[in-house]
Amino acid sequence: MSDLLNHPAFQGAVAPFIVALIVASALGRTRFAWLAILPAYATMVALDTGFTLTPLTASRRSWLIALLAPLVGVAADSYRRSSRRVAPALAGAAALVSLWVFWTLIGNREGWRSAAVGAGIAIYFAALVAAVLRLRDDGLRCGAAGLGLGIAVGIAGIVSASIGALVAGAALAAASGAMLVVQIALARTIAPGYTGALPIGMIAALIAVGAQQLAELPWYALLLMLLVPLAASLPVPRPEVRFARAAVLSLLALVAATLPIAAAWYAARGAPS
């Protein structure tokens, strides 16, 4: 049993998938179904590192923000879901929060490099979160983007020498995959709103930037990850069969996910140890 609980595949994929499936099924008829991402990710954190907050390292700040993001999403949905200002405001807030998460790493650099790294991280967070928030009205597109982003950051993360990124990325992919399964099983598309789209964008950005700053993920792989939500937003036929639409969108997202993975692999092969 202990071996099972300690296995990265169980911690990152199996357990979060089962938890997300159960919670999303239970909340499937409500507007809170996408909150399932929260317990799924929390399960991964509990099994992988535990909930210790001291010292408050970048990794711990990262999962703390990841767990708060769905709650902020619920608040945004409850407040003014239809307002056009909410999405840009959330993307801007994500940029500011990213500076807090990675502050020690930004501060470890000197002079202009510190400012450049901070600005780069903030702009990246704003861009990725904004790209995913664009999908907030379509549960299948958002789920496909989460699946693709999770696999992209997970595999690119392990290629960049971070098992932590692999486990966290797998949890994001598993939770998003579970949301796709629930929508197919319930034969209804569940709009993620900010409750689902915000955590997907935030978690993907947190893992990706974490792997770039704390491991060896090249910066250009981060840019290529922006293509995943764009791929999931490409126009596809609207067949009556949800499964087919979900499969096509997931395939598009996964094809886009191969690009940052390939970039990470290319960088690893060329880099001296």
């Binding site: 098992i163 491991a215 692999w265």
Partner: peptide, 18 residues
């Protein structure tokens, strides 16, 4: 793709950047 020493430098172990 990566050596053990690169892995040890990452956040999984020594988190050398932080």
């Amino acid at each position: 793709p990566r050596s053990r020493d690169e892995h040890l430098r990452s956040a999984d172990f020594f988190s050398a950047a932080e």
